[in-house]
Design a protein around this nucleic acid. Sequence first.
DNA 1: GCCTCCGATTGAAAGGTTTCAAGTTCGAGC
DNA 2: GCTCGAACTTGAAACCTTTCAATCGGAGGC
Lengths: 349, 349
Amino acid sequence: MTRKSGDVSSFSAARSAGVKDVAAAAGVSLGTVSNVLNRPDRVSARTRARVEKAMAELGFVRNESARLLRAGRSSTLAYVMLDATNPFFTDVAQGIESAADEHDLSLFICNSDNSAARERKYLTRLQEQRVQGVLVTPVDPMEPLLDEVARHGTPVVIVDRTRDKATHCSVAVDDVLGGRIAVEHLLDLGHRRVAFVGGPERIGQVRDRRAGAIAALEDAGGDPPDLVEVRTEALTVAEGRGAGERIAGMPTSARPTAAFCANDLLALGLLQKCVALGLRVPDDLAIVGYDDIEFAAAAAVPLTSVRQPRRQLGRRATELLLDEATNPDHQHEQVLFTPELVARASTRR
Amino acid sequence: MTRKSGDVSSFSAARSAGVKDVAAAAGVSLGTVSNVLNRPDRVSARTRARVEKAMAELGFVRNESARLLRAGRSSTLAYVMLDATNPFFTDVAQGIESAADEHDLSLFICNSDNSAARERKYLTRLQEQRVQGVLVTPVDPMEPLLDEVARHGTPVVIVDRTRDKATHCSVAVDDVLGGRIAVEHLLDLGHRRVAFVGGPERIGQVRDRRAGAIAALEDAGGDPPDLVEVRTEALTVAEGRGAGERIAGMPTSARPTAAFCANDLLALGLLQKCVALGLRVPDDLAIVGYDDIEFAAAAAVPLTSVRQPRRQLGRRATELLLDEATNPDHQHEQVLFTPELVARASTRR
DNA sequence: GCCTCCGATTGAAAGGTTTCAAGTTCGAGC
DNA sequence: GCTCGAACTTGAAACCTTTCAATCGGAGGC
């Protein structure tokens, strides 16, 4: 259903007023108008009032391009997000935003949606726009454009990923440790046949979380083969359902009694499918997720998960970015936060 | 845990090369460099190669401000989102993004986070940046700044809200109808005492969805009082849990047998709390949500919900925006999509 | 009444790109 | 060898704001 409105858009004639027009209307010089805008204290109250009136009447809108051209750098940050539909990243973004807000900066969020091409497009645009700095959760932390951008003077901070060489600041969470505490929790509960649900391999975090899981099993004296590998193509709810089907389809003797998922989306999909196929959670299958997104706690069987300090991640990254942008003695820093297990019903004994 | 890296950032000396430097290095004029950038076909292959080499060597980065200053308008759209953590809006954003992508435009996402002040800040910034246009889900559709911005020549399209006066294009979904089909579904299943969970009142959609619910009840011959009102302070999971506590606490004789929630976040919170308090879903309480976010289907008791064409919403809004930006005969249009019920286990008989 | 000083205001330059009319070069055709 | 036109290339203007040295006007001190 659609309705057209015929009313003539009552656009005023002139395209848009600039400082010049305002100056003319107020009977002052360009410089004075600029002063009203940028250093109001240097202008007498009377003049200021006159200029402000003129601005209002003409509907003056500052031209940021011209301002920037002179100023050199904008007061905007940008976060190039990996996946806007994953609540984990939107929480990180909130942390960034609140930190940016405190410094009177605006935040533009760009969504690469897991596409390296899109990520490059945005990085280039942002660089061209001379933003203060860019926070990015890269599709591939080795992307050379990241260095390129930083080298040309736009600070870049890597969020939730790490890199061997310290050419950027980065903020991440210890994923190996996270995998370890998840599996230790399951071992404590008496589970011996544990599945690791995750993939693809190329994602560093999947590798790290699995490595942690294996380390926990080894420490416990079990053979690593005790880890049942359930590979997924992506970290999505749909893939989690697929994993659920495969696990439910295993013969009881071989079926793991617990599953550790590389993230909560997988875990939620797994949980749903298991319940649908008649497996009881946690009795037949205990489940641990990762990220502790809001929906993990809100599931009908609340999900045990490994919590990452998402907001903190964003805040700290922003602070590092601003330091890099403003402090000439800036030293790159690799911050590693510690994850924490949140036990809920999905692993209750 | 933190690690400092002492390596000297090997910044090159010169701050940044401009067209002028490239021209000098390549031994051509400014105009030619600009042509290489904007109309490569007008430049001989040999010259182009030389210029491109110079650009690479100098690490030339186009200055978007200067370009814009001349061009007048950028090739960027922006979406001012109401709540980045609500999956509904991130899906809308994806629709916008894919439409923008097809037109070779970049999309910047800004999160007003339900704050009118923040919304105004972003609208002003975007206007100053001369973006092609702004899509916005406003905190308050009557916000005068929306008109202001549009009047000064930056097209504004309202997403997922409507307005009486047709001063903008808008794209929304028929919320009254949505409320109606949700409750009709419950009536069909034999429910007679139905709760409406939602609030606050000031949100237009809450009003509309309730109005639809009431209309359905009236049509069914029941008295409107059959609608049990459960007010919430916001449309969040936490508020949904609160509602669950209140409903579970009602004496069985007064307790509704079904609940229609103003959105899925409420419904998920409600579902969780009910399960935790021993109410069976759908036997003791059937639940219908609204939005059909991915997590509704992924809940352990999959949620019946009213689906809105989220991606479509974003796509259509973007098309309208681009028409307004490029077509001089543009007519404002109010598009209203039709919602659709998706029945799942939470209302299974 | 003159001089100094100070705050308020001015005017011109600068910032990097695009555009476009005007200029140059080169080769073909006569 | 000359003319003509096509294909390229050039140089200057324009975009709009900010900055800063210079100027102005008036108040206070002598």
